[in-house]
Design a protein around this nucleic acid. Sequence first.
RNA 1: GCCCCCAUCGUCCAGCGGCCUAGGACGCCGGCCUUUCACGCCGGUAACACGGGUUCGAAUCCCGUUGGGGGUGCCA
Length: 471
Amino acid sequence: MSSPRVRFAPAPTGFLHVGSARTALFNWLFARHHGGEMVLRVEDTDAALKTQEYVDAIIEPLRWLGLDWDSGPHFQSDRRDRHSEAIERLVDGGAAYYCDLTRAEIEERCAAAGLPAGYHGWSRDRDVADGPGVVVRFRCPDDGTTVVDDIVRGRVSFPNESLEDFVIRRGDGSPTFHLANAVDDHDMGITHVVRGEDLLNTTPRVQLIWQALGFGALPHYAHLPLLVNAKRQKLSKRRDDVALDNYRRRGYLPEAMVNYLALLGWGPPDEVEIRPLDEIVELFDLDAVKPAPAFFDPARLDHINSAYISEFTPEQFAARAEPFLTGPDAPWPAECYDRATVEALAAEIQQRIAHLDEAAGWIDWILCPDVTYDEKAWHKSIVKGRAAAEVLEAVEAQLTDDDFTSAERLEAIVMGVGDELTESLGQRVRSQPPVRVALTGTGSGLPLWEPMRLLGKDQTLSRLRKAMSRL
RNA sequence: GCCCCCAUCGUCCAGCGGCCUAGGACGCCGGCCUUUCACGCCGGUAACACGGGUUCGAAUCCCGUUGGGGGUGCCA
């Protein structure tokens, strides 16, 4: 394929949607695979949306994902003159006409004529003059078919009689996206239009405008399957968790997110799903994209994110997790944070978390100045635990003489207490649970010994005493 | 209502006429490992929506049905 040129053309809505991110990714993968170019174009026909804040809300998540572009960001609103000129040409050539009917007037006419709801070309021959509030409508052919050759779906035909004369210029003079799309894609030399399936129905309109403007050969189209929720509805801003930034904030890694997104609607031929982006670039192509909608499955995302997290070295992990351990949401006072502790326990934490914001929960008891008891665990291991008081007492006594330099020795001491009590009482005494609850506050967690060493002698002894006095 | 799209395990992907008694991954269930939790390892559960064709032969091609979804705006 000779150097394709694609575009990612999001509307500025305040944040980047995971569905849009997937569209951006597939455009990017296609461009990079074929050595082509990607254009970023902000579809702000609504003009008021061109604020730095809204633009950043698109650009920053793209950068976070590691996607780049060769041209842009361009703004549709900056191209107003080109759009107006195209509209004039269409009106002059008879391909479009003025219309001053309101929504209500259109409905009235339909009711009076006994026609189903729709526009029915009411103003085609009314010879309306241009003026404030007057729109421009495109005159659609009454018969024949408009065909969209889609890379993902094959040939899709639309009977022209099902197409209404649609608006290409609003009452305020601004162009609608169908018009702007055709003009911009043409002017920017777009060869492949890759976007969501929800836009498939609008393609005939854009193609009709394209042809009426004499733009020549149409670009190729590829309509990607929609991303859906568990109920198989299109992901929606209102009911679904779709803001990419939310995932970032919860500690999903960009490399994991991009990897997962690539797997929705596409799969590598060798079935190796978790792999670096450059390999995906090499393997990806649009003709291998599946047409069926794909469920955005959080469980699968978690799995992939976990896989990436577990690959980190301790240093990498500590660096990547740091934003989640030092921010205002960290459970400990800022001055208690200690990177060395994180690195020392990294491997153990890594295999237990699916996203980085879970890291703090495994070590908060070490970095926080005090313990918080989980009452259920307290009850189970200390109130009802066999000989728990004796265990705490014996462990405290033996630890008083230890220098706390060896995790192995700490383990031997605690477990030894359990063995001794088991023998003297003639019943199995488990020493780890009460000690764990006394130190960490909970019944389960990291393997105790190394964290205990890191907690230090003073804290360990004082927490054991605190637990004993609480009994 | 009208137009359009889609249809392989619960989910994502493989399969593009014979290699399929349908493969992988996630999830789920069971076991091993382990004096916590987890990781790891082993095993299991589970699908070609239905009905017609075409063909020597269909998960794969065609038609229909059913089901799901999308669009039907002076949003994109």
